[in-house]
Design a protein around this nucleic acid. Structure first.
Length: 121
RNA sequence: GUCCUUCUUCGGGCAAUCGCUGGAAUUUUUUCAGAGGAAAGUCCGGUCUCCGUGGGGCGCUGUGCCGGCUAACGGCCGGGCUGGACUGCUCAAAGCGGUUUGGACGGAAAGUGCCACAGAAAAUAUACCGCUUGUCUGCCACUGGCGGAGAAGUAAGGGUGAAAAGGUGCGGUAAGAGCGCACCGCGGGGCGAGUAAUCGCACCUGGCAGGGAAAACCCCACAGGGAGCAAGGCCAAAUAGGGGAGCAGAGGCGGCCCGUCUCGAUAGGACUCCCGGGUAGGCUGCUGGAGCGGUGCAGUAAUGUGCCGCCUAGAGGAAUGAUUGCCUACGGUGAGGCGGAAGCUGAGCCGUGACAGAAACCGGCUUACGAGGAGAAGGACGUAA
RNA sequence: GCGGGAGUAACUCAGUGGUAGAGUCUCAGCCUUCCAAGCUGUUGGUCGCGAGUUCGAUUCUCGUCUCCCGCU
């Protein structure tokens, strides 16, 4: 269950705006994640942003693909009913694969207690 | 054979696992395809789409030696003229030629304006120093010399500047001067070659009038309607708003309409239905084309064309990837081996593999691009004949 | 994807063919018991970068880099 269908993605600008406005901000030195509960039990959905300030198109593609792949391999471990938007930082371009994995694992640890507490729905 | 320079071209390969986008089968899993030479900058030109559009002029923008190619171009090809570098002929210079590399290369005798500083003078030339000849005059002196003042002539010499108004020589002159002459240069004409730009001439003519700059304004010739796939077309939720219809008319005067009178209803409202515009969103435009690869023919070439073969990304918060292993190229380190030494070879390990990511589509230009492989041209050295 | 605009001193801006300027800032002096204000002087520039035109370029032309804005 490591696939990445369209149902597991944020596809509209409105989805992204909702995550920014009503979500919780979780930061590390490689990226910033915005997490928002939708209130249903569908699988978590993910979105990745890559503005022009991060570099040229080639580098932005690389940043997005590496981070997306790392999240995709752990997709089933994210809580259901969650919308997540990732804003990568420029340092992610030169980061080692193991370092990205470590930061995503840390994000998962921080999300787990949220499951019992009350996130804005 | 080695090395160097320039140009062209290729732009690491294979496999496993987990994935993404599109197509086709089918039905739930298979199978096929999936970044570039610049996909970039958006600097030009087109295709396509919508809007505008009687004709002409002004204005604006662009282009600018000539000819050709092209759908078109500010692109490409060929030619001319011209600057630089190297080089051959030559004792050397000039001149002529070769190779290579550049040139926004129409017009400055259409007009307006500009040329700082320096310099006498910077574009209808000009007289600062100087040179020459008269005039007046001072001193020495006595057919002369040295001065001063002012007048006229002069562009040879001086210095300034990026640039000083044809050059050299001879004649000429008071001194000079295209003032005259010869040669060179320049303008105009003629003849010849060439489609033309332009070139040639032992031809005629003009004493020469024409400094630079048009990437100053400008003049001339030619070209250009505007916007751009976020163009444009189709479908169309919710909410708000717009238009229409229905829900309330009946009776009198009168042949009927308008009008007017009486009664009823209250309505700038609520409800029902319909219509069009249109937002979110969806579909389309969307990829088979000035296409690619061979090969023949025409042409110096750019290019055109005949025949054969091929189908080669279509996303849309945006796919074409991630991880690992092996190979490969290069760099570093370097066990070990060869060697007297210099050095050569080299297991293993580590690192690196450029510039860079399609967004409607083509043709150009410009810019970015590490190492290495292949090819072509030129040069140097060595060896052999 | 498409269309516009700007780069000059540490900062904000003038200048638009002829030795590159103003204000603030820096530093020093005067003034004041001291500080501020004021006055005087002073430091600081590859005019974003690279070519070209010109005798001469910040200015004109071309290329290039960076930044900003608009269309949704």
């Amino acid at each position: 269950m490591h696939d990445y269908p369209k149902a597991a993605r944020l596809l509209k600008p409105a989805h992204f705006r909702a995550a920014y406005d009503g979500g919780e901000r979780l930061a590390c030195h490689l990226f910033v994640a915005f997490a928002r509960r939708r209130g249903d039990l569908d699988p978590a959905r993910f979105g990745f942003t890559c503005p022009r300030a991060l570099g040229k198109a080639h580098d932005r593609n690389r940043i997005k693909r590496r981070l997306r792949e790392c999240v995709r391999l752990r997709r089933d471990r994210f809580p259901a009913g969650l919308d997540l938007v990732f804003n990568p930082r420029k340092s992610l371009l030169g980061a080692a694969w193991e370092e990205i994995e470590r930061q995503v694992e840390k994000l998962l640890d921080r999300l787990s207690p949220c499951e019992s507490s009350s996130l804005p729905s």
